[in-house]
Write a protein that binds this DNA or RNA. Structure first.
Lengths: 212, 212
DNA sequence: CCATTTATTGAGTGATTGCTCAACAAGTAC
DNA sequence: GTACTTGTTGAGCAATCACTCAATAAATGG
């Protein structure tokens, strides 16, 4: 039974480097510069290995990048959106938490600015269009998660009947993507928090009966 | 007196291609794929010229790109923000027009999706960091224009005294950048218009006196 | 005509790209 | 020990990158 981690028999020469540490180094590079702007030379140097080892352990530059994205999506920094939507019972408080945490995480100097998924493959050659499509699908999947949550909120009475869950999902997705970009352009946590609070002002309230 | 266009004496062999048309072709490519992902091979093919002609007419890939950006900033598609802020007397209506026009322009199929300035140099090699900085400065300059307009609006009484012009400027900048990204991810004019309308709901109103 | 100036052409520059491979190293299975 | 399996190494692959240049072409000035 192979592929089960440390269990079973480990045959052949053991790996001489820490696979997770190497993946983390690659993550940092891809996050900072994006997919294509990161060369194999930079990758191997940052990971402390030679090209042969990289290809033996990760198969491809593309496969390495996809593994980086999947690991990122499971890390606290990359998974905060899903966690907040899952943990917060109220829809408004869920999205408020998402925006406020984004404002704190995106400019955090302990890692590259912004969101890896949003900014790592915006400019890409035709031959690497697959990578761009991969991230675009991921972003649009996140949009659907927003939409589902907001539709449920409307059915639960948390959103007025005349609110538009799909439009609201697109709005929050756009704001979050914009916050990521602003963080990459140098915006700090204070500025992003103010943006988050303003964005929350768009949350649809039940209108009082018009006078007259 | 040289550099005056068709006036004066035109010595030497005349150019055999339309410089503006070539610039437009380059613009479309850079707009679609970004700075680094666009190769000189693609550029010369799209512009219908050989490398020598490109370097004689535009000096550099970098210089060509900067000229593309400057031409874009003067075109109706790239200048709509400045025009709206200049023409609309009311601050709210000015920003409303900016957002609504962005919703119409960004997904327009007659040109690549989104804003060239926002998306043409997000992923860039270290050696081309100058290009990334060039566009970042441009974006941050736009932020300052927003800020100035909103500060003036507050002094003119269009914004309540407790509103924060700087935060509001960052908010609108983030929304617009997010709308550009959403357009690149496939959002149509209808979806972007709904995003624009929701974004406008964050405009600070003078609060009524709290009851009690 | 000739001199001058500018543009175009096609071949080709060195550097870098992602990637491969034969040789060797280091482990387990028996 | 031998056989087998897997990892590392260093050299080097073809392709592409942005870019250059001598030769030639096409205009004006005299």
């Amino acid at each position: 039974m192979w592929g089960m981690g440390q269990a079973g028999t480990a045959r052949g020469r053991p790996r001489t480097f820490d696979r997770d540490a190497a993946l983390a180094a690659a993550t940092r590079l891809f996050w900072e510069r994006g997919y294509e702007a990161t060369s194999l030379n930079e990758l191997t140097e940052a990971m402390g290995i030679r090209p042969g080892s990289l290809y033996a352990a990760f198969r491809d530059k593309k496969a390495l990048f996809k593994e980086v994205v999947h690991a990122y999506a499971r890390s606290p920094v990359g998974a905060f959106v899903g966690v907040a939507l899952r943990e917060e019972p109220g829809a408004y408080h869920a999205f408020a938490r998402v925006l406020r945490e984004a404002a704190a995480i995106y400019p955090d100097p302990s890692h590259p600015a912004g969101c890896l998924t949003i900014s790592a493959a915006t400019n890409v050659t035709v031959q690497d269009a697959e990578i761009a499509a991969f991230l675009r699908d991921l972003r649009n999947a996140n949009l659907e998660i927003f939409h589902d949550r907001l539709r449920a909120a409307q059915q639960g009475g948390e959103l007025p009947a005349d609110a538009n869950p799909r439009a609201l999902a697109g709005y929050f997705a756009a704001v979050i993507q914009g916050m990521s970009q602003r963080a990459r352009d140098g915006a700090d946590a204070a500025e992003l928090t103010e943006i988050a609070e303003l964005a929350l002002a768009a949350w649809p309230r039940h209108e009082p009966d018009p006078p007259g």
